[in-house]
């Protein structure tokens, strides 16, 4: 696990940005895979500009929960409202929500047959109907932001894991999302590449992006999160501000989990 040195500007956790109102609201969300009850009565409100870190053992439902928010997974009960739009089977609503919600995956999922630049411009051109030149400029802007503009004309397979994940973040940002979901963005990376990706995410947090991040990078959680959530067996077991969460966990299960991941 990497420890990010907390910078003075970031410690303690960043304040939630001024504009208020819920960015995401989950009420009584339940989901089953066949007989397996993967999400149980999830209630969660994420305010605009808020950064939430979700941790928990594997199979606890944390990835499934964030994948429900942009409908990569369907929930069977309860309601999910994203940016004021309730998620239903209506494809128009799903499209609308996906345009506002960016996502980064554990395995980057860059498109291997497209250059880095083309990976970034694909959605702006086809979804936002942006002219190619404008999309190229936008893409270069975000590539510069994640500090790899010189890689624009390479293919994903020619980049390191850390660089690929930064490209994936830039690709999501090109759609100018209001909310970013991260699904274990550093879990597939070599240890020395974790830091560069986390730094990119920290700078995103500094700009007030609403972020939901499934990660076990507790240094990142302490530095950036407004709230840390611990999930187990499909339930939110504990939710607290990072300081209280780490120094004084309320539940035995949380204590056990933290002792395991912080203990080595």
């Amino acid at each position: 696990m990497s420890n990010l040195a907390p910078s003075a500007a970031l410690a303690p956790a960043l304040p939630v940005s001024a504009s208020s109102g819920a960015a995401i609201e989950l009420v009584g969300v339940n989901k089953w895979y066949g007989d397996f009850h993967v999400l149980r009565d999830i209630d969660l409100t994420v305010n605009r500009g808020e950064r939430i870190v979700i941790c928990g053992p594997s199979g606890s439902g944390k990835s499934t929960m964030i994948r429900c928010i942009n409908r990569l997974e369907e929930h069977q009960q309860g309601s999910i409202v994203v940016d004021g739009i309730e998620l239903t089977n209506d494809l128009k609503r799903i499209d609308e929500i996906r345009r506002e919600v960016g996502m980064c995956f554990q395995h980057f999922n860059l498109f291997p047959h497209l250059t880095i630049l083309e990976n970034l411009t694909l959605a702006p051109i086809w979804v936002r109907k942006m002219p190619k030149k404008e999309a190229d400029e936008l893409a270069m802007h975000f590539l510069a932001k994640v500090k790899i503009p010189e890689q624009a004309h390479k293919y994903p397979g020619q980049l390191s894991g850390g660089q690929q994940q930064r490209v994936a973040i830039a690709r999501a940002l090109c759609m100018k999302p209001k909310i970013m979901l991260f699904d274990e963005p550093t879990s597939a990376l070599d240890p020395e590449m974790v830091k560069e990706v986390l730094e990119t995410m920290v700078s995103l947090a500094e700009e007030g992006m609403t972020m939901l991040c499934v990660t076990h990078e507790m240094g990142f959680a302490r530095q950036v999160a407004n709230r840390v959530i611990f999930m187990d067996a499909g339930q939110i077991i504990e939710m607290n501000e990072p300081e209280a969460f780490f120094s004084n966990p309320q539940h035995e299960r949380t204590r056990l989990f933290l002792s395991q991941i912080l203990g080595h």
Binding site: N70, G102, M175
Partner: peptide, 17 residues
């Protein structure tokens, strides 16, 4: 990999795109 379709969907591309 299924992740390719998921990434495309999460970017707002329609299934045919």
């Amino acid at each position: 990999p299924a992740g390719q379709f998921e990434a495309a969907s999460s970017l707002g591309l329609k299934p045919a795109q």
